[in-house]
Amino acid sequence: MDILGMLSNTASWIISPTTIAYAIAAVGLSVHFGYAGLLNFGMAGFMALGAYGYAISILSFGWPWWAGILVGAGASVIFAVLLGIPTLRLRADYLAIVTIAAAEILRLLFTTMLFDEWTNSADGLGGYHDSFRAANPIPPGEYGFGPWMYNEKDWWVRIFGFVLLAIAVLIVWSLMRSPWGRVLRGIREDEDAVRALGKNVFAYKMQALIIGGVFGAMAGVVFALPSAVVPGSYVTSLTFFIWTIVLLGGAATVFGPVVGSVIFWVIMAALDNIIPALADAGILPITNIQAGVLRYIFVGVALMLIVIYRPQGIFGNKKELTFVK
């Protein structure tokens, strides 16, 4: 077994674009669920809007990369408003069902042959990298050390992702120590009490939905930056993985979602390396395909165990428990 190769492979996931993208989405979801108590199960939809908004703006309209990002953000704001108007006044679990349904509608619309001209249907979109890469200030070459050796393009994606993540974290940190965040935490616990104190609960929830949604779209952009946009990525499982990350790190914490994403992907990468190796070596009596599936079973079990035994997450404070009974 190539232990060193496996370690290096696993370590590289600490700063992979996927890890960063999931972290940004998780920060967005922490605004929704952790601070505002909104059960958004449509994060995959917000991410799809970011990714497709970016790719379609560039491919179909020839706009520059930054305009693509703005389009993605704008689309997620509209999506959040459309979702929020009917559901934010209703019971919390209704929002869960509506958001999951809306995200699926988006995925079906991106998959259908009907809009093939723009979305390339199930095949997805690729080849939109030129504009973003042209803006790369890093001179060509290989940089880094150990498992983290990348060329200038890979670094540019990572650094840009980091910047977006840092902005998201900074915004959440500033918001949540402010009186605005206090109102939001009050709403999470008992919105009638906050309403009785003269706060427009609906507006606060809507603002939270929009902020988290825009973060979701940014996550979609970062997710799309290094590779391609394929509708099959934006399934409900994606949303559930982000939920696992948020609950793992601590939903009502600023850095929990970020650390959660790193832990999640490092463990996933480690399992992806170790289990097939064990299967190859004949230690585990399973096929290689089964070895690849096993880690997803662990995700599901982990999600259950976290929610039951440590709902506040690794970094969360039990007293600040998000789940209101």
Partner: peptide, 26 residues
């Protein structure tokens, strides 16, 4: 609001706090 401190509960009751608006809050 059990997950807020007593003081936070009180401050939530105050009217016209500018910091409760999204942009100034930053």
């Amino acid at each position: 609001l059990g997950l807020l401190t007593v003081m936070e509960n009180m401050k939530l009751g105050a009217k016209n706090q500018v910091g409760e608006r999204i942009f100034p809050s930053l």
